[in-house]
Every structure is written in structure tokens, then in C-alpha cells.
Design a binder for these strands. Structure first.
Length: 449
RNA sequence: CGGGGCAUAGCGCAGUCUGGUAGCGCACCUGCUUUGGGAGCAGGGGGUCGCAAGUUCGAAUCUUGCUGCCCCGACCA
């Protein structure tokens, strides 16, 4: 993509309404614009990141055996009356009427809808277990939206729902999603830690929040320091194997958000030198809720003995739009965003330091073509602008690599390759730079495999 | 929903107290000079001053009502 043809409305000054760093940077980098409180338009740069995150989530869901579908944003109130939540949900739910004055709502979540779909389509225990998911816009009329896309009213969410015959089966589904989440967040360059969360109506230990650590995170978290060095399972993981030991290894030590924090337990279970107190952002939440919806809504299957059994369900959410902000909170510096390679809107920014100079232009055109041929996503800054302005813009939007091409280095037969994360710059031939870049991209592809 | 604040050009702001027909920086357009970390000079374009009513010869400025947005708290992926 040539920057001269792209839509990238960068702001030099901080918009005053943006308090936290991710919100400021997203506005300044031309990723989003606010439409109204807690509702945002995603501009091309932001949209690219959103799609990349969505795709990683999708791939890991698929890998774990979940099946993608797509449910509507607008739902009928009748379904919610079946579960009893129409009256319980309160003002967070956006209620609307169609032209026939039928009560409708903009879905804040999809338990009712998925349960209805499931109940109409599945009658036998032989069709279990299943995990279904979709990635869809939700609306929750938060009392006070804030922090940009981190707590918007309209947000993109991946929500999965598991259906099992027994609680033991539900635990296996839960473990699948648990492990899928470890991989999902790791692929985005995030350190995520599962933390025990408030258990639902069923109780038990099947509820976890996935927290990523960021200095500017909204909640205080406490955990054993071993979690910081644990590696998410690799791509060779067999989801059909018994995942319980793996889940156990990620839940065996102390980890809690401030709501669940128990100082006495923390101090008893974790040696003083192993205690970590940090700040975190919740990016995923998984829980088991048994027959809460299947019972009242009649989602039952026939068991081997012919009896009707309400299915055991769980639900598993990932805040896709929130992740965009969360990644920035976890990865930025004074100059701007620092995208992990896997979610970066482009792999590399090609900077023409002297647009209009025949030799430099020609070299850049060649490099641009060759980078693309190598399968790299390139943002080519071909604008006639000052070097400083180009550096500043490229640092702000945070592409992982900058390939800097100017007459001086060209004369020496070289280009400069700058790594955004470290600021390190290497002078080298274009061919060497190209192999470094393709190696970095290959590394990313390998993680994905 | 309680408390506080803001609303003037794309962004950041001044002007409001003391009414006289809108200004600054950045961004944008044109030209010249510049050119490796947000250049200089000159010339330009862009605003129903959030909306509505009122007071007045005259309202960004005063009065009343409304709306939107932000911050702090209770709630959340």
C-alpha cells in the first residue's frame, strides 16, 4: 500500500477526551474515530489490526474443534422471556421495537439464541459434544463507557458455547477453550494469565478470567511469579488428548484479580520472593453454567437410555475490540504503538527519505515490488515530506519494521532496517534486509502453524 | 444514576467576566528556498461560535431551556 493513496488521518496533538494511552494512540494513529459515546468507527489502519486479531481468534477456535456460525445482532425479546433474562438484564440491554411494535433487542450476548438453535437441531446424545462460536458485534449500554475501545458500548466479541451430556464432558470442553485461549493470546504477543473468577450459579472451579499484564491495566492482580515464564502450548498440541494436566499446570498456583484476592492465602501459598503484584486487563472470560438456559428453554437430548437430559453448557468470550486496546496498553513507548508482528497492520514500512529524487524513487519502487513479491505486507511512504515527519509517523503507527531508503545510504549500496521495538538500526544491503524481514515473517508463520 | 467539567476550523486552544459581527499554533492549499528525526519565508482556503428561544440597535459573549461529550464513583468482554 502506498501511503499517498491510503487513508491515514494522523493527529499530531492528543485529543483531549482520550485519557488512557491506547485510546490516545488509536486516535492519533488514525485507527478509530468516535461516533458517539462508546461507539467507534474503525478506519483502515485500525480495521486491519481488528481483522488480524479476529483471524487469530478464529484459527485457534477452529483448531480446538469449535465450529463457526454467525448469529444476528438483533434478537427477539421473546427468546429472552423464555430464559427469564428479559426482565433481569436491566438497562444495559438496548431495547428496540420494529414497525409492528414487536419487542426486539440488540444482543448483549447470545446464550438464548444459541440455545434455541441447538435445541431445534440436536435431539440425541450422539450429537454431543459440540462447541459453536461466532464473532459478532454486541451492544451493552454501559452506564459509563470509557477507555476508548477497551470499554465501549458496541464491541466485537468472540463468544463460544459448549454443549455436553454430562458435567465431566463439559469440563473437557471447558479445558479445550482454556487451552485455546492460552494459545490465542500468546500468538498476539501477550502474556496472559488465567485467574480464578466468580463462579456462576453452579459453583465449582470452572470459571476463569484471562488477564494480560500491562502497567496501565485497569485492575490490580496478584500471582505467583512462575506464571510469567510459562509458555503457552505449541501448535502440535493434541486437543483430543486429556488436557486436564495442562490446565492443572496453569491453575495450580495462586493467581487472582483484586475482586477475588485473598491476602492470607496469597501470603500462605506464595513465598515472599515469588509474589507478583501487577496490573492487568481482562481479555477473555470462560465459564461453565450447566443447565441454566437448557433447562428453562428445553434444550434436551435423549440419552442412551431414552430419557431426556438438559444439556450442560458453558460459554467462552474474547473481547476482540478490547484486545486492540489491550495490546497497545501492553506494547507502546513515548513515540507510539509497537505492534507485535502477528497483529501489525503491515509487516514493514518502507520510507522514501527523498521522494522526488530519481534514484531514490527508482530504488524504492524496486524494493516495494520485491518486498511484496516476498509475501510481505508493505506500507510505502512515498509522500513528499520531511524525513523527520516520516519517522515520527512510522513510529506512531508502530509497524514492527522500517526500511529506510535515502540517497546517502543508497550511494553506499545499502538501506537501513530499523526494528520498532528496540529502535535498533542496521545498515545493510537490500537483499540482507529482505532476508531478515522474510525470516521474521516466517517466524510468525511458524508460530501460527 | 450521584458529583465535577467542557462545547469556538480536522486537532490543541484564546476570545465570554466588561455585548460591536471571530483569532492563534499545528494540520491543509500555492510558490520559492530547504531536505537523514515533526524546516523557513510569502501568499491562501476553511468556522450556522453545540441547538433553540429570549433580552438588545447589535449576542461566541447576557438569560432560560435542551442536547452532546469528558472526568471521578457504583457495574462490565
Amino acid at each position: 500500500m502506498r501511503l499517498s493513496r491510503f487513508f491515514l488521518p494522523i493527529l499530531r496533538d492528543d485529543p483531549k477526551e482520550a485519557e488512557i494511552v491506547s485510546h490516545r494512540l488509536m486516535l492519533r494513529a488514525g485507527m478509530i474515530r468516535q461516533s458517539s459515546a462508546g461507539i467507534y468507527s474503525w478506519l483502515p489502519l485500525g480495521h486491519r489490526v481488528l481483522r488480524k486479531i479476529e483471524q487469530i481468534v478464529r484459527e485457534e477456535q477452529d483448531r480446538a474443534g469449535a465450529l463457526e456460525l454467525l448469529m444476528p445482532t438483533i434478537q427477539s425479546a421473546d427468546l429472552w422471556r423464555e430464559s427469564g433474562r428479559y426482565d433481569d438484564y436491566g438497562k444495559e440491554m438496548l431495547r428496540i421495537q420494529d414497525r409492528h411494535e414487536r419487542d426486539m433487542l440488540y444482543g448483549p450476548t447470545n446464550e438464548e439464541l444459541i440455545t434455541a438453535i441447538f435445541r431445534d437441531g440436536v435431539k440425541s446424545y450422539k450429537d454431543l459434544p459440540r462447541i459453536l462460536y461466532h464473532i459478532q458485534w454486541k451492544f451493552r449500554d454501559e452506564i459509563r463507557p470509557r477507555f476508548g475501545v477497551m470499554r465501549g458500548r458496541e464491541f466485537l466479541m468472540k463468544d463460544s458455547y459448549s454443549f455436553d451430556l454430562t458435567q465431566e464432558g463439559a469440563r473437557r470442553s471447558y479445558n479445550r477453550m482454556f487451552v485455546a485461549y492460552l494459545r490465542t493470546f500468546a500468538r498476539m504477543g501477550l502474556k496472559s494469565i488465567p485467574m480464578a473468577a466468580e463462579t456462576g450459579p453452579i459453583g465449582g472451579d470452572l470459571s476463569h478470567e484471562f488477564i494480560i499484564l500491562a502497567d496501565t491495566g485497569e485492575s490490580e492482580v496478584y500471582c505467583h511469579k512462575d506464571y510469567l515464564s510459562m509458555e503457552a502450548p505449541g501448535a502440535d498440541l493434541d486437543y483430543d488428548a486429556d488436557l486436564a494436566p495442562l490446565v492443572q499446570s496453569w491453575t495450580g498456583k495462586y493467581a487472582a484479580t483484586s475482586e477475588m484476592h485473598d491476602v492470607a492465602r496469597f501470603e500462605a501459598e506464595v513465598a515472599e520472593t515469588d509474589r507478583v503484584t501487577a496490573r492487568g486487563i481482562e481479555v477473555g472470560h470462560i465459564f461453565f453454567f450447566g443447565t441454566k438456559y437448557s433447562e428453562p428453554m428445553g434444550a434436551k437430548v435423549q440419552g442412551p437410555d431414552g430419557e431426556l437430559i438438559p444439556v450442560e453448557m458453558g460459554s467462552y468470550g474474547v473481547g476482540v475490540t478490547r484486545l486492540v486496546g489491550a495490546i497497545i496498553e501492553a506494547s507502546h513507548d513515548d513515540a507510539g504503538i509497537i505492534w507485535p508482528q502477528s497483529v501489525a497492520p503491515f509487516d514493514v514500512g518502507l520510507i522514501n527519505l527523498k521522494a522526488g529524487d530519481t534514484d531514490t524513487d527508482a530504488a524504492c519502487e524496486t524494493f516495494y515490488a520485491r518486498l511484496q513479491q516476498a509475501g510481505l505486507d508493505v506500507l510505502y511512504d512515498d509522500r513528499d515530506d520531511r524525513a523527520g515527519a516520516k519517522f515520527a509517523a512510522m513510529d506512531l503507527i508502530g509497524l514492527p519494521w522500517q526500511l529506510i531508503v535515502g540517497p546517502k545510504s543508497l550511494k553506499a549500496g545499502e538501506v537501513e532496517l530499523k526494528e520498532r521495538a528496540t529502535g535498533e538500526r542496521h545498515s545493510l544491503t537490500f537483499d540482507s534486509a529482505l532476508s531478515m524481514l522474510t525470516a521474521a515473517a516466517a517466524g510468525r508463520a511458524k508460530e501460527d502453524a
